[in-house]
């Protein structure tokens, strides 16, 4: 990916952020936003953005939609499960820290994977190193690498692999 492409993606992200901040599409604030974004892009040419490393293919867009739907479902599910644990008098927890493997290579994909894992049922990412993720699990189901990988990672990885690779 060329330098100009990276800068353009960062610029688009910044403009979107600016539009959401202002909440209007008035021309004057748009001009100020473009100026400020250009200055910031000049200083942070090599920085990342939400769009960098994203594959602009129809499959990726579809995967994004299904990823968001899956993520919201898991988020609500995780909260309900946690609520049940908290409300039960004898606190049925069985915690452990497990190690799982991920196939993702791009940095954005890995970051999104770790964040999604933190927000989903009973799991909390502690560290991401190379291909290994260390995860704290409130209700431990399987302590070995394969079983834990299947239970925690694969649901998200399926979508993120298409989106970011």
């Amino acid at each position: 990916m060329s330098k100009a492409q990276i800068s353009a993606k960062l610029f688009i992200t910044l403009i979107l952020f600016w539009m959401l901040l202002n909440g209007t599409f008035a021309l004057d604030s748009f001009i100020v936003g473009v100026g400020a974004s250009l200055i910031i892009v000049y200083f942070f040419r090599d920085s990342l953005s939400f769009l960098s490393e994203f594959r602009f293919t129809p499959q990726a867009l579809m995967a994004t939609l299904s990823y968001v739907a899956f993520f919201l479902k898991e988020l609500v599910k995780s909260n309900l499960r946690l609520a049940r644990i908290v409300l039960e008098p004898d606190l049925p927890i069985n915690p452990g820290i497990v190690k799982v493997r991920t196939k993702l290579k791009s940095r954005m994909g890995r970051l999104l994977l770790a964040n999604s894992i933190t927000l989903t049922p009973g799991t909390l990412t502690i560290e991401l190193e190379d291909e290994w993720l260390y995860i704290h699990w409130v209700t431990l189901e399987s302590a070995d690498i394969e079983g834990a990988t299947q239970a925690i990672v694969e649901g998200f990885e399926r979508h993120l692999e298409v989106m970011y690779g």
Partner: peptide
Amino acid sequence: LLGALGLNRMPDIFNRIQAGTKTTTL
């Protein structure tokens, strides 16, 4: 409120972080 309750009931720091993060975000 459930998150706050979890923060008080959970026994160690990792479980408290779990309760604190998920519920407050949602």
